[in-house]
Design a protein around this nucleic acid. Structure first.
Length: 102
DNA sequence: AATTTGACTATTG
DNA sequence: ACAATAGCCAAAT
């Protein structure tokens, strides 16, 4: 089975430690995709049911969550992050303190 | 095979 | 600090 780049992305996301976050660009880079930041989001959107991928630890490089504030997806991500000790204020994370690799 | 599509990012005004 | 633009490239259609 030849792993696709999507699966490499999932692999990288799975490696993000709890209580930490990573940017899409960072995940793309670590997966060996270079600048495929956009593809990371798409790959996460295609996750199969029953997955255990911590997609919520992936945010924008600005620290903002990638969804409109108030949407259901946004709220779910925010809750999951806060549950791991990541502060989310105004839809943003303190990237300076919670980023996986500064 | 060609075109469209994106849970992005860096740059510019 | 914020809005618009351009660049990015694998996958889906």
């Amino acid at each position: 089975m030849e792993p696709t780049r999507e699966q490499k992305i999932w692999q990288v996301v799975l490696a993000i430690p709890p209580g930490r976050v990573a940017s899409y660009g960072q995940v793309a880079d670590m997966a060996g995709l270079g600048r495929q930041a956009r593809f990371v989001g798409k790959a996460l959107g295609k996750l199969p049911t029953g997955h255990s991928v911590p997609w919520f630890r992936v945010i924008r490089t600005t620290g903002q969550i990638a969804f409109p504030e108030g949407s259901e997806t946004f709220e779910r991500q925010k809750s999951l992050l806060e549950d791991e000790g990541v502060e989310v204020v105004n839809g943003r994370v303190d990237i300076g303190r919670f980023r996986w690799c500064p």
